[in-house]
């Protein structure tokens, strides 16, 4: 079916009759998408406009929506500091890759168990899974810091990486919901064929769950990449800090009423966001264009 879809897009006229009307894009569809994208993009255009502004404009906060001046040198200025930006980038990559791997490895199996396997106490345990997300992280921060300190993990990447290998409420719940949409006959058939629970997960569920796991990967990446609070609390050495914290240094000032150099702040934000945009742009085919149309098509 994936093949059919692709063909249909390439040559819409030839395949029009075979595409259900619900999937056909009308001029109205395009108009709406364009308006929505444009509206959502206004703030982003502003980000770019500010990034290209001169220091005078920043000092007077006299920005315009559409860029009027183009100070591209701002993009090199953020690297012209005593902060090790390259090192920050590397740290971000290391932390994010491990975090993503941890979540993608653990969440699938746990979510599958909650969706399919029956056990006493499961529902109660599931409520605990959900309930763990209802306590603001701000309040457990200090006890957690003490815990990690006792483990000797302060000033290492471990507090930022290791918990990911145990999944979290959000991802367990997400996978559970995705699994529960799949027809149960699939696993039953596989069990009859002699697969155990792990076999069913590994051979049947995992391939069908890929979009959900990719989504988890993207969310984890986005979160870890942009998070500066965790690194701020757990890391002390500058050489260990991630890029998101580096961007905080650009926007931080020594006096409370002092305005940050907004042009550099926006340049930093763009540089921080750009890799994520590329990852999402390239990664979306695994998210949306894999053939996982449940049941019949997926298993064979």
């Amino acid at each position: 079916m994936a093949v059919l879809t692709d063909v249909a897009v390439d040559r819409p006229t030839a395949k029009e009759t075979r595409t259900p009307r619900a999937f056909r894009a009308t001029p109205f569809t395009y108009a709406t998408l364009m308006i929505v994208s444009a509206v959502l993009s206004v703030p982003l255009v502003l980000v770019v406009s500010i990034a290209l502004s001169s220091d005078q404009t920043v000092n007077a906060n006299a920005f315009s929506i559409i860029p009027r001046e183009f100070h591209w040198e701002n993009f090199t200025r953020v690297f012209d500091t005593s902060l090790p930006m390259g090192r920050f980038l590397l740290n971000s990559v290391i932390i994010s890759l491990f975090a993503v791997a941890g979540q993608m490895l653990s969440s699938g199996l746990i979510g599958y168990a909650f969706a399919r396997l029956r056990a006493p106490g499961k529902n109660a345990l599931f409520m605990v899974v959900i309930a763990t997300m209802m306590i603001p992280t701000q309040i457990t921060m200090i006890p957690q810091f003490i815990l990690f300190k006792e483990l000797g993990w302060i000033n290492t990447f471990l507090p930022l990486i290791i918990p990911n290998f145990f999944s979290n409420g959000f991802n367990v719940f997400l996978v559970r919901q995705f699994v529960s949409r799949l027809p149960k006959e699939i696993d039953e058939a596989a069990m009859i064929d002699g697969l155990g629970f792990f076999g069913v997960y590994r051979r049947i569920m995992l391939p069908m769950l890929m979009p959900a796991l990719i989504a988890i990967g993207i969310f984890t990446l986005t979160y870890t990449w942009g998070d500066f609070m965790g690194p701020l609390i757990y890391l002390n050495d500058e050489s260990k800090m991630p890029l998101a914290l580096g961007i905080q240094y650009i926007s931080s000032t020594s006096a409370a009423m002092q305005a940050p150099p907004w042009n550099l702040v926006m340049v930093g934000s763009i540089l921080l966001t750009l890799p994520m945009i590329i990852v999402y742009y390239l990664g979306q085919r695994y998210l949306y264009e894999m053939d996982i149309s449940g049941g019949s098509a997926g298993v064979k």
């Binding site: 500091t81 902060l83 240094y249 931080s252 000032t253 020594s254």
Partner: peptide
């Protein structure tokens, strides 16, 4: 100490 990059310097 608090601040941004210039403060560090």
């Amino acid at each position: 100490v608090w601040g941004g990059e210039p403060d560090k310097t």
